[in-house]
Design a protein around this nucleic acid. Structure first.
Lengths: 130, 130
DNA sequence: TGCCGGATTTACGTAAAAGTCAATTTTTCA
DNA sequence: TGAAAAATTGACTTTTACGTAAATCCGGCA
């Protein structure tokens, strides 16, 4: 297990550009250490990047991703702040549950569409795969 | 059950602007009928709008939503086209399944974050809700 | 030591998805 | 019928999330 990843290693692993990674750094989502001017990414940085990309796949904006990341990087914090976090966790959870319902619905519709295609292909006497 | 919806009824129901609806029309995603220049939305138009917004919530672009909608609006079609649709349905399904895994992961992390907050609050002797 | 390839910085560019504004037009209904 | 309210159109603007280009810098090595 290597100590550090270079920026290009990460661009290859996740199929994103260096510009994208630097952009996330500018946005304060990751903070790799430096040797001179060169960025060195720790395992934790790589993990954060993974989380960012997961958020992106789910359609969250940078601002939303930042907010989510702050939730589970909660510092000791004061009582009121903790309650705020708990409330926002609840909101995000509901949002994710809505997305999950959306996915289930869409999957059902895709199933129906596929079946309609296969039925029609059978009628036409077409082979199901190339 | 009314025959038609006006544009403002839909903007209120779905909490979007008229500009957004007109934009979707320009993009060819919906095609309400006209009485004079005024748009009249049928139930099917409303349903399409619902589908569009579901796609948006899942982070799909307009282009992707258009592609998905073409899948289950598949016309009689010719054999090769049917196979193309079946293939693309498969791709979208895998994409959705990835999103579903992403959601499960994120939900687990939110659970952990919430629990950490609650534990900390108990230590501080703070009441769990306002 | 001189060069080469990768990394960085700075700055401007851009596509997608609307928002905003102004000028009409249309509809409604008192 | 006539004015207020609602809808339309077109043009321009904004925001987000990077892309791209140019200039610079740095570390290794022949």
């Amino acid at each position: 297990m290597r100590d550090y990843y270079t920026i290009t290693e990460l661009t290859r692993e996740f199929d994103i550009s260096t510009r994208t990674i630097r952009f996330y750094e500018d946005e304060g989502l990751i903070a790799p250490i430096r040797r001179g001017r060169t960025r060195l990414f720790r395992h934790s940085d790589r993990q954060l990047l993974k989380n960012i990309l997961r958020g992106k796949r789910l359609g969250f904006s940078i601002a939303e991703i930042r907010e989510i990341m702050q939730m589970y990087k909660n510092p000791p914090g004061e009582g009121g702040q903790l309650r705020t976090i708990v409330r926002r966790v609840g909101e995000k959870r509901r949002e994710l549950e809505q997305k999950r319902r959306d996915i289930e619905e869409l999957l059902r519709e895709l199933d129906a569409a596929e079946e309609a295609c296969l039925t029609r292909m059978a009628e036409l006497g077409v082979a199901p795969h190339s």
